[in-house]
Design a protein around this nucleic acid. Sequence first.
DNA 1: AGAGCATATACGTGTCAAGGTATATTAAGG
DNA 2: CCTTAATATACCTTGACACGTATATGCTCT
Lengths: 133, 133
Amino acid sequence: MAYTKSMESVFEIIAEPNRRAILSLLVSSQQSVGEIERQLRMPQPTVSKHLRVLREAGFVESTVDAQRRLYRLKPEPFQEVNAWLDRFRRFWSDHVDALERHLDRMDQSAPAKRKTKKRPRGPNRGRDIGEEK
Amino acid sequence: MAYTKSMESVFEIIAEPNRRAILSLLVSSQQSVGEIERQLRMPQPTVSKHLRVLREAGFVESTVDAQRRLYRLKPEPFQEVNAWLDRFRRFWSDHVDALERHLDRMDQSAPAKRKTKKRPRGPNRGRDIGEEK
DNA sequence: AGAGCATATACGTGTCAAGGTATATTAAGG
DNA sequence: CCTTAATATACCTTGACACGTATATGCTCT
């Protein structure tokens, strides 16, 4: 029981270069397996297997057209990636100034002469560890 | 001239749940290896090895503080992910509300007959957006 | 110099996913 | 029906990589 734990994260899905290539292809319009196969010059079983993974992860969906399957993108997983990315967004969209980052770096390389002696229980001021949501 | 190391794609880097957990930790502030180790309850060599991967991929950088290394985020790889995501953005800019349903549905979607994996268990439901481990 | 802590690395192991090849399914047409 | 086209799946092999354990390196203080 409890067989399928197999909810792979969206990140594992897009980690595969061939899958990203397929997704990029589908941006322009929906494509059949054979069209993907030809454009990416990749063996048909490979295409089918990747499409299966993408479909099960919700990245694509397919409709039947005679003997063909037409695959097209679905938006949700991309939103999920975007949601994850949002938490890091302040690192470049807020202060895009590489200058400030640079200054921050010098700030602690210069006056850092701290000993290991006494360390007030965590140098992370103002941190709250969003733990165990 | 082995200038560029085995430049793995940023996607392979963030495919690893523990690495995403580390990145999430570093959002709040820079952390030492030991602090990461304790907060994530993960063995020290594991933390160090993941940090090495993250550093070589440009996700983090470190400064020396006595015997400790303080790690902090770097923005570039996140921008790279964001740039990739941009190409798909038009697909979900419309369906902003579909994300919630998607995430809620991910619990029971049992799409594959893969073998047993030991991913997130218990209370955290399917999504790992918030935390892991 | 030595002890002790903090971090990095080396090594062996198991797991899992991706690729290749072959075959199965399904639909269309003669 | 039988054949052919289009796609899916099964089986096997291989390689990468994440983990655990053990050890090495490095820093600080006494």
